[in-house]
Structure formats: structure tokens, C-alpha cells
Amino acid sequence: MTLSLSDIKRVAKLARIEISEADAQQNLIQLSGIFNLIEQMQAVETQKIKPMSYSQDMVQRLREDIVTETDQHIQFQSIAPQIEDSYYLVPRVIE
């Protein structure tokens, strides 16, 4: 797979990362290197191997449906940049 500069910029945009032209060029080289490595690994025969979602052979523990948490919003909001009427305020976003 060949990466283009526009792929880099798109990924950066999706990740909300601002990158300069020079950094984008640099990232293109580095990420292409990673993709080359992945391409090499594609040669390994994996047809008969079951995909692994987890590295550990354990199963998920379940909790009972009980409310255990108390209201701590005053404490949490003490580190928020801006709050009003117990809402967190963020730059206006409308989609």
C-alpha cells in the first residue's frame, strides 16, 4: 500500500492533530516505513489461524446492576477550564 500526503493530512484531521507541511512530509516517510513492514508480514500464511482479539485467555467479569457512584461533579469540575450551571463549557460546536 502506498501512502500519499493527502492520506496523512486526512488522518491528522480525523485525529484533530495540527501538522505542518514539513511534519507531514516526515510522517509520510515514517508511516510508509511502517506500512512496508506490514507488507512484509503479509507474506506470512495466516489462513488457518483464528483471529485473536485479546492476548490473554480470560473472560469478562460482570457487575451487578447497582448504583454505587455518588455525585462528585463539584470536585470533577474544579479542574474544568470553564463551567456554568454545572455544565462543562466547550467552544461552540454545531454539526
Binding site: Y87, Y88, L89, V90, I94
Partner: peptide, 15 residues
């Protein structure tokens, strides 16, 4: 939930 009205030029977030 995002609320766009009532916070001037900001968005209010209720989690």
C-alpha cells in the same frame, strides 16, 4: 448531551 443554546458563544456539555 450538548446544548448549544443559552451559553452565549459556547456549547454546554452534560455527561
Amino acid at each position: 448531551k450538548s446544548t448549544h443554546e443559552g451559553f452565549h458563544d459556547k456549547t454546554g456539555i452534560d455527561l
